[in-house]
Design a protein around this nucleic acid. Structure first.
Lengths: 301, 301
DNA sequence: TACGTTGTGCTCAGCCCGAGAAGAACAGCA
DNA sequence: TGCTGTTCTTCTCGGGCTGAGCACAACGTA
């Protein structure tokens, strides 16, 4: 139920009890925030948008962009879009048609452990956002700085789980995109876990949804699409089989009839261009190469 | 997610007026509640646990069990388990080992439209719970009554979507389990949408997770398992192929070496018994029979 | 011009899936 | 007791999908 648990008004004192049941002042306050895991692809690597905290706690640490839900004014989705625009200067929400930015926004999960924020009990609704290669953000009013970070530079182990269990650290650590990187970056609060859940969700969702097209501009090529899958899954895919599979899934991509202006950077013929089809589910799915890892950590619930 | 329901009873301004009268302080608080979509299988049909509201708004309507999150005291998961035990009398939480009730509890999503509760802005974290055939609940202190309802008796269309679009109403309406049923039951607040999302999630999750075993007691047979899939998907499955598939997925079920005491109710040989294996993901997945419905409404995010 | 690279299409063997059927075991009934 | 209908379990067969490899052409670069 929503705000309820109304005891049946029977007997004396029941009225007070009933009022307390939906009088928020009778309870200790709870803050509701909305955090966004914004992912994009830059130079072939997966990047996440982070802001540097300008105030304690965790001052100077990097955190997911987010902020308080405005009571009585907005829905959760609206708050997520607003925070993304506000704190980073990216994309003009959805209204004024500045950049017709194709942005995918979906709810990831809600985190409400009492001790996750030392100040008070904060319930955070996390959102997941994907967008094509975006420019560098400008810091909003709340954050000291905002920047895209390669996810391979971040320390995602929540507590005791080492990253080496999932993937060797040496294939990931530091500077996949060329930059040396100042070593693993730790995230504030429980944002490492939120980001980890978001990455699991993305990796799982590429299999059965046409979500990968959200990382690409409107027109793209099949090799472009393959690059998205390879970057997110961190696995090389068979070009021929991938090509055949994508074209065989109805509604995944639609041909534009055109090709690219030039060939690839290192040679090769021009590729045909496509744009996203109208399918919302991939039938059949584009299954990830069978990894025999018995650790079945499902990202998608 | 567009959660637009229950417009204010008398015009848009009435809500603000009511809120202002109810809470004279300008500080606009947000309440956080936890609602539970508890599903079980009774007499071969999918049932959901509902409580009858004893106070306005929506007095007399049925709603999902739930209540306020206790600030500073509990995590969201704990609150969901507590509400389920508290409001219905089912299962002794997890502590005192009364019934070793195998209960699956997972977060479904969060709903926070400002107008979803006319009293104030309420953010509800919805949970999904599956359990084997459970006894009739006893009403807790808060709810007037609690009962299992066949999901086929409920009116799940949120606003304009008719159920006939998804499945013919005549195959669902009224009394699949034998009872005639007093017609479609409407749910309070936006709980019809929450329940609908929960059903989509369950249907999708049966494909790639061993979740179906959560609907069954510890020992079960392959036909028992098939009955779960058939009830949730509302489709007949090929007994031979289902048998082969289940046994071929590693870690799905483990043989106990025993068989049932008697044959089926209408004859047939004794079936071998199994219990759930240790797999947390089904590899390969148990795909639903290809439904050519182009309406790709994905339940799992 | 030569060469390495890459997009696109093809072939082939193996696996999985849907459909059907057969055999055996069981409950209910005459 | 015998018969009939039902159901569990296993098997077979054809089609489709998948992974792997290869061929050819187009392209950039040396």
């Amino acid at each position: 139920m929503a705000a309820d648990d109304q005891p049946p008004p029977t007997g004396p004192g029941a009225e007070q009890q009933w009022l307390a049941a939906y009088d928020p002042r009778a309870y200790a306050p709870i803050a509701v925030t909305v955090d966004v895991v914004a992912l994009t692809l830059r130079r072939g690597g997966l990047h996440v948008l982070l802001v540097e905290r300008g105030a304690p706690p965790h001052q100077g640490c990097w955190a997911l962009p987010g902020g308080f839900l405005r009571a009585g004014e907005e829905d959760l989705d609206e708050a997520a879009a607003r925070e993304l625009a506000e704190e980073t200067g990216l994309l003009s929400a959805s209204a004024a048609g500045a950049t017709p930015c194709r942005l995918h926004l979906e709810q990831l999960g809600t985190y409400g452990a009492p001790e996750r924020d030392p100040r008070m009990h904060v319930v955070s609704v996390a959102y997941l956002a994907f967008a094509p290669d975006l420019p560098d953000p400008r810091a909003g009013t709340d954050a000291a700085a905002a920047a895209w970070h390669p996810v391979s530079d971040l320390d995602l182990r929540p507590c005791g789980r080492s990253r080496a269990a999932g993937a060797p650290a040496d294939t990931h650590g530091g500077g996949v995109d060329g930059r040396p990187g100042p070593g693993p970056v730790t995230l504030a609060f429980d944002h490492a876990r939120i980001l980890s859940d978001g990455l699991d969700r993305v990796r799982a969702k590429l299999e059965y949804s046409p979500l990968a097209t959200a990382f690409l501009p409107y027109d793209f090529t099949i090799p472009d699409l393959r690059a998205v899958y390879e970057a997110v899954w961190d696995e090389k895919l068979h070009p021929g089989n991938f090509h055949r599979k994508v074209l065989s899934v109805p509604g995944f991509v639609e041909s534009t009839g055109a090709t690219t202006e030039r060939g690839g950077a290192r040679g090769g013929p021009r590729a045909r261009t496509y744009h996203a089809g109208d399918a919302r589910l991939l039938h059949p799915a584009l299954l990830r190469p069978t990894r025999d890892d018995p650790a079945g950590a499902a990202g998608a619930p």
